[in-house]
Design a binder for these strands. Sequence first.
DNA 1: TTCAAAAACATTGATATCAATATTTATAAT
DNA 2: ATTATAAATATTGATATCAATGTTTTTGAA
Lengths: 159, 159
Amino acid sequence: MIEAVSPLPPADVLHVRDTCLCFAAQRAARKLARRFDAAFRPLGITNNQFSLMMRLSVPKPTTVSELADFLGIDQTTTTAALKALERGQLVILTPDDKDKRIRRPALTAKGANLMHAALPIWRAEHAQLDVELAGKSTVIRTALDRLAAPTPPSPNRKD
Amino acid sequence: MIEAVSPLPPADVLHVRDTCLCFAAQRAARKLARRFDAAFRPLGITNNQFSLMMRLSVPKPTTVSELADFLGIDQTTTTAALKALERGQLVILTPDDKDKRIRRPALTAKGANLMHAALPIWRAEHAQLDVELAGKSTVIRTALDRLAAPTPPSPNRKD
DNA sequence: TTCAAAAACATTGATATCAATATTTATAAT
DNA sequence: ATTATAAATATTGATATCAATGTTTTTGAA
């Protein structure tokens, strides 16, 4: 059996590097994460925690799974994220009366106060980002939403 | 001292939810990561490992730091990623002759072979993605590259 | 009613990520 | 030549992420 040990053709490598949307998305997301993490650092929260708690700022009752859906993350990731916020007393999880499987996450007073402090920070950072993107923000967000949209059904895909 | 315990105004919450580029980027990146992770799973690698090894498929000698720069990740993250690939014998780290601080990562024969198997998988998955995006791929990639671009210098920012 | 299937959440193990910090080596200034 | 600084990499500790799997509770079908 002949095994290839040669490197890939340079043209192929360059093509992947210059066109891969997955790679481009990871890189862009990391960059923005670092940026907003830095902005929120004085408050002791990350950009992820901000997004999660922003969802909890809507009075509507929520579940762990609904939260996961909204954030686009796994349910197990959500459980882990909530645990950290619980430790910091920013979020409290209350068992549901009707359905004993459900634990409803909600902001504590401390968490709500923190969001009041976080909002102007988000505003300032995002305004600066908008300036840097010179009017392209909407186009970019539309593109990102498209990437996050559910995969359209296809006869070739087994989900 | 009066402390606000009320939730944020619903209009503010919705505005953040609907406009935050950081959140949109995280969600899109996670979605694509899951997708390509699944595609590469038969090979036992992740989308991140694919991107890293793709860079190593360029014959040009590299360093850990240069790799970090290219991937847009921290140098410490790169060290950790290389460690996993080393364990799998897909990558080997060789001390540099001239500069004893430098360890040069390179694909092993096993790693190169794996990339030969990975390329058609990437092609197929990306082609499918392109179809789903209905001709918007280039626009989207341009947007992502813009987000990943270095922050333009500003008198207000201290880097 | 009983019981199988589904739903909600948690746990484990692995990679991924970065800030803060440490270590080793090279470079530049004195 | 010494020494201070910078550069390259590694380590630690925390959150982030998901697949696989387990547990408890609910729901639906026989």
